[in-house]
Structures are given as structure tokens and as C-alpha cells.
């Protein structure tokens, strides 16, 4: 063993690196196996289905609404917009009446807005296009027990482009 190692310095170094990856990588996987909220071993892409009030969604699907649906729901007193973008983007301009719940500050920010979310149809949005903050926040809201939660995939650019009511500033209007 010692002689082999001495004769194959490069290979031995690589073997050592592979060993480190295997040992500590395995610790990471084991840590997940015993975690309170483990990640799925195989990540799945989000399943998006069109929102239909009459249909109960499957547990791992997210429901989406179009600009027209979102605008229609906005006049419904039972709906509330949730802005999943950062606090800076929210302050620069957001859908009128929306509350801010940035994806990576979900746990810190939820208590401040929890009372307003209760019993409402929550319409989550972000920057439209490929942004996924809305999907991530919608998934967490569902996990926290809120329902119904829908995602407005067109998001801020579509809403603003359509000329629907917006407002700026750090605190939501009541």
C-alpha cells in the first residue's frame, strides 16, 4: 500500500479527494434522511394546472391564473395579492393592496402579514416570465395551511403593462 502510494503520488491524491467527497457527501445524505423536513431525493419540476374553483387540486400541483382572472379576482373582497419579490422591488411598485412576502424571508415576514392572509384567496406573483419566487412562496403558503393559493404567472410586468392599479412604497394599503 505504502509503496503503491509512493509510486502514484498523483493518483493517490485524486483517490484521497474522491474519498473526501464520498465520506462527507454521504454525511450530507444521511443528515437529510434524519432531518425533520427532508428534501425529496429526486427533485421534481413544479406541476402547474389552470385554477378552477370547482376542482380540488392534487397535492403537488400549483394552480395558476391569467391576467384576466387575476384582475377579475382583484375586485373580489375575498382575494389578496401576495408579492413574492424582494422588499426593494416591492417598494418600487406593486399591485395595489398586495402584501410583500419575499421567498427567502418567508419565515421572518409571515407573522407580520398572517392575519391578513387568513381566509383569503391568495394570488401570488413575482416578475413574470421565468421567475420562480411566486411558485416557491405559493408552495410554502400551502404548506403553512393557507388555501386556496394560486399563482399569477404573468406577474408584475403583465399587470403593469395592462395599466391596472398599482402603488409604490414599503407598506401595503389596507
Amino acid at each position: 500500500m505504502k509503496d503503491w502510494v509512493a509510486a502514484h503520488r498523483g493518483k493517490a491524491t485524486i483517490a484521497g479527494a474522491v474519498l473526501i467527497v464520498c465520506v462527507f457527501g454521504s454525511i450530507g445524505l444521511l443528515r437529510n434522511a434524519v432531518a425533520e423536513h427532508p428534501l425529496a431525493w429526486v427533485a421534481k419540476p413544479p406541476v402547474l394546472v389552470k385554477y378552477d374553483r370547482a376542482v380540488r387540486p392534487s397535492p403537488d400541483a400549483l394552480q395558476t391564473v391569467t391576467l384576466e382572472d387575476a384582475a377579475g379576482m382583484a375586485f373580489d373582497a375575498g382575494a389578496l395579492f401576495v408579492d413574492a419579490r424582494t422588499a426593494e422591488e416591492y417598494a418600487a411598485g406593486h399591485i395595489q393592496g398586495a402584501v410583500n412576502l419575499p421567498t427567502n424571508h418567508y419565515d421572518d415576514e409571515l407573522p407580520a402579514v398572517a392575519a391578513r392572509l387568513e381566509g383569503m384567496t391568495l394570488i401570488v406573483y413575482c416578475d413574470g416570465g421565468a421567475c420562480e419566487a411566486s411558485l416557491q412562496v405559493a408552495r410554502r403558503l400551502l404548506k403553512s395551511g393557507y388555501a386556496p393559493v394560486v399563482v399569477f404567472t404573468g406577474g408584475w410586468p403583465e399587470w403593469q403593462g395592462a395599466g391596472y392599479p398599482t402603488e409604490a412604497g414599503g407598506t401595503p394599503s389596507p
Binding site: 462527507f24 457527501g25 445524505l29 443528515r31 431525493w41 420562480e132
Partner: peptide, 25 residues
């Protein structure tokens, strides 16, 4: 996931293992 480099199926395994490999190193 947001980097959109790995196949989705492998993202979680990578996220579980990498921080511990960094710590070990």
C-alpha cells in the same frame, strides 16, 4: 435550481451533499 445548470432530478442530491463536502474540505 435557480442556476438552471443541473438536471432537475439531481438538484436536491447536490444540495444535500455539497455543503458537507465544503465543510469536510
Amino acid at each position: 435550481h435557480n442556476y438552471r445548470i443541473l438536471p432537475i432530478a439531481t438538484e436536491n442530491l447536490f444540495a444535500m451533499a455539497l455543503p458537507w463536502i465544503e465543510l469536510g474540505t
